[in-house]
Structure formats: C-alpha cells, structure tokens
C-alpha cells in the first residue's frame, strides 16, 4: 500500500504526515498526528462527532479524503482553548451542562464555532440549523442550544482564533 506525504496546518501548527491511499482525515488526525479531539461515531457522515474546520468551514473528517487537505488550514476542538484560557463556547458548554458523556462535544463545538465565526448574533433557529448535522444522545440538545446562544452573547463570535 502506497503512502503519500501530506502537509497542512492544524490549530496553527504545521504538520506533515504520511497517509494511506483512501485513508480518511479523521483517522489521520487521530492516529497520524495524535489529535484525539475529533471522534468516530459513524464513519458515514450521520453523527457529526468528527467535525473539524477546514479553512474555517465545518467538514466531516470521516468523509474527507486525507490527501485533499494538502496545504490547508485545519482547526479542531483540541486547539480551541488558548493555553489555560477556555474559548467562550467551551466555558458556556461547561456552565450549561451541555456535555454529558462528552462524545458529541468536540463536533458540537466545531459546528458552533463555524456558525459564530460567520454570524456572531445568531437566532435560536440559526443555532438549531448549525447543529442539525450533529447528534447528541445524552442532553436532548436544549443545554447545547442554550450554551451556544450564551457564548454568542459573551462575544464568542467576535473573538479571533
């Protein structure tokens, strides 16, 4: 099986890794570069737990052919906090009890971030739409929606990074 080199930035750091043909980005992020924040829940696009941002847009890493991120800029929940300082979304998720088992949380945070980066003052409907591709089996979504709206009020969308 042939290996191909791929380079990209992840949370501001440049990465270089060899990938298998056909390998998906989720696998490469987790096992190739050791960012374990995106999760595998389905490998078929239906759960959203693997959501990462590619050039600022939400993508499902399980459905992304790894070699297609050559030269692109990725961000994941693993890079959301700045040092010890949590991103307002992370803080709001904690305060609103929006993470129960926590398995959907990374994907939810990325889906929420891609919304707030574009639309700092979303309506409730905007939030529901933004997380409509992400499944949470624990919380019933309500605390997540509240947390995202709260984070927006606290200026999450106006913060760079």
């Amino acid at each position: 099986m042939s290996k191909k080199p791929v380079q990209f930035t992840l949370n501001g750091e440049s990465k270089a890794v060899f990938v298998d043909d056909g390998q998906n980005l989720l696998d490469v992020l987790r096992r190739g570069v050791g960012d374990l924040s995106p999760k595998y829940g389905c490998g078929q696009g239906t759960c959203g737990a693997c959501t990462v941002l590619i050039d600022g847009e939400a993508h499902l890493s399980c459905l992304t052919l790894a070699e297609t991120v050559e030269g692109r800029s990725l961000s994941s929940t693993g890079g959301l906090a700045q040092g010890a300082e949590l991103h307002p979304l992370q803080d709001a998720f904690m305060r609103h009890f929006a993470a129960q088992c926590g398995f959907c949380t990374s994907g939810m945070l990325m889906a929420a971030k891609s919304l707030l980066d574009r639309n700092p003052n979303p309506s409730r409907d905007d939030v529901v739409e933004a997380i409509s591709g992400n499944i949470c089996r624990c919380t019933g979504y309500e605390p997540i929606i509240e947390a995202i709206l709260d984070a927006a009020q606290n200026g999450a969308g106006r913060r760079s990074a």
């Binding site: 959501t51 939400a58 993508h59 499902l60 459905l63 889906a111 997380i131 409509s132 591709g133």
Partner: peptide, 9 residues
C-alpha cells in the same frame, strides 16, 4: 440537503 458540514462538501 444534509446539515451544514454536508453542504460544505
């Protein structure tokens, strides 16, 4: 079509 991430792809 799909959710936002699917639509981006």
């Amino acid at each position: 079509v799909g959710g936002p991430a699917i639509r981006n792809m």
